[in-house]
Design a binder for these strands. Sequence first.
DNA 1: GATGAATGAGCGTTCATTCAT
DNA 2: CATGAATGAACGCTCATTCAT
Lengths: 191, 191, 191, 191
Amino acid sequence: MSSNDKREEIVRAALELIAENGFHGAPMAMIAERARVGAGTIYRYFENKDLLIAGLYRDLEERMVPVMLDGYSLEQSLRERFLHLGTSFIRYFIANPLYFRFLEQFHNSPYGTAYRKEKILGKEGGCDVFRELFEEGVARQVIKDLPLPVLFALAFGPLLAVARDHILGFVILDDLLMTRFIEACWDGVKR
Amino acid sequence: MSSNDKREEIVRAALELIAENGFHGAPMAMIAERARVGAGTIYRYFENKDLLIAGLYRDLEERMVPVMLDGYSLEQSLRERFLHLGTSFIRYFIANPLYFRFLEQFHNSPYGTAYRKEKILGKEGGCDVFRELFEEGVARQVIKDLPLPVLFALAFGPLLAVARDHILGFVILDDLLMTRFIEACWDGVKR
Amino acid sequence: MSSNDKREEIVRAALELIAENGFHGAPMAMIAERARVGAGTIYRYFENKDLLIAGLYRDLEERMVPVMLDGYSLEQSLRERFLHLGTSFIRYFIANPLYFRFLEQFHNSPYGTAYRKEKILGKEGGCDVFRELFEEGVARQVIKDLPLPVLFALAFGPLLAVARDHILGFVILDDLLMTRFIEACWDGVKR
Amino acid sequence: MSSNDKREEIVRAALELIAENGFHGAPMAMIAERARVGAGTIYRYFENKDLLIAGLYRDLEERMVPVMLDGYSLEQSLRERFLHLGTSFIRYFIANPLYFRFLEQFHNSPYGTAYRKEKILGKEGGCDVFRELFEEGVARQVIKDLPLPVLFALAFGPLLAVARDHILGFVILDDLLMTRFIEACWDGVKR
DNA sequence: GATGAATGAGCGTTCATTCAT
DNA sequence: CATGAATGAACGCTCATTCAT
């Protein structure tokens, strides 16, 4: 097994356990066991548990951006771009429910709180493109003239909530329903 | 100090500590100290920590409903009723940021997960009235014909997100902004 | 068992183990076991291992002073006073070899080093009386006019070395030999 | 780098780290790093950490003897020989404070204790010559008729104590003071 | 021979829970 | 009833040692 494989196994194991059981259900020894690795080995790759988790978060963020931007074009209308991003966003989490669960655990946790302090805005990987979209929309009077955080709340709030509901099995978002849902989100932000 | 006072002190102390520091920053001994009560005493009122926290949650839910329903009238239009509930909802959390922080801690935690498993729908205290509102709105073709969880996501998602942003100081929701924000939520759910 | 007994048991156990095996041979779990106490219990009495050990040291220091001063009188000649203190000092450690071993462990250890930084001089409990003796002796031209630390080295160096030798069984210091030895120390410091 | 160089690098690195930080501040990995050698390499030269440290000790002992004997002549008087050895001894440690610090760390440590058990007498490198000096002095009635360990205590006790004080900066031993100090030691052992 | 990644026993410490008082 | 001292399992982390390369 190569060194890189080991790192990846650790990341995978940590992600799974945290997604399944939360941080309190993912002690280092259990992560090591699931990764089929000695307990001390984790510390060759991550200085401590906090940094392992922060690393996990950064990993997920980075992986997400290109997926969301795939097929995204500034030549489309604002509405089309919004629908594209919203759909990508939700599809991504439906396809990777573990990632979603992890991010939820992370956000409301001492780990996430410290991390968020640095970023304030620009949260939720790939937000920059959302921010640009909103700013352009406000300027062109297509989107409501509300502060950015409020627009983010109107867009991400429902997206995250519905992704959670789908993952927990409270709704099944087929293609039609997803489209109608994201159009509803657009209704919230558009003028 | 009456038995009831003691219980209340415990609840208050636990709420404060969890809201301020998260679950990891609220060990039983610290809760007992803040409540000016022996550590063992907590166990007279709550079988264990999980049930203390679940009890806390139930408490908050119950306290919230009458506040939200204050001034609520079935004689108002659906839109007016939605705006009323949304405004009450957000005002309540702005007035009680500790409650909000606690609920956020609770939702993504082993405690909350177990609890949610029981309730599936009907979550977020005072939802019944929201559910009735949505069902009536769908039936009367005023609200989009989407599954209830999706409508909940469209309404609560932004409400919770914006409440968090306000509490963390990312936006300041004055009366005007709050009204415009909740109208935007209505735009999301209305036909 | 009273609370005080428990504290004492912990102190005794820690002292024994450290004296017998050094710091590395006295993990908290072993101290707890020897004290017939839960591992967590130690932490009710001592914030952490460092403070347990510093506490132990302070304890020993305090216990020693009155023993050394018993029968000490400023009306005796300088020589008699020196012999008295030297004899008491060495007798004390011969009677309490565990204390001696502990102090030796302590002095050259991260624990002791930090502690010594604060005190620089005035080390080895009951030194003040030695210092006064030396200062008076220098002033009255009975003792060599050397810096205090050098006089301390001339007096304590042999005392500690011989105590160690006795405890390890390299010599047996009977009363006669002890007297002759301390007289030899006096020969070193006197004019 | 030759095999012998490697061994020497390891010894040097270990000595430095232990002298600077004590045993607890010198893990094998850190020694390897400072010696610019793989962690496993150390084990080609030393069976385990205990033996590495015992080897270190033996090294220092061996290096010290010729320095102390430089200029030493059996034709000098006993007093002159004592002063010579004492001066060399103390000068050596003042010139090599790292060696001194290491030896102090070593003496009160599980490593040193085990080692000392083997040697009982003949401790402190270059003791044989001291022993001969003492035995001759006792026989010729120039030195007090005390057991050898007691004479060692009278001589080495102050020497080590004063060397420590100098190295820690509590006194500065210039040539004059050093001479006067060693003469005082001689006063302790001579008849 | 030399390496350094991997190991896992063992460390100091915390904290939910119990129970004698 | 109320207490809080006592408990010990479980945690995050270190490091002497091994062994595949």
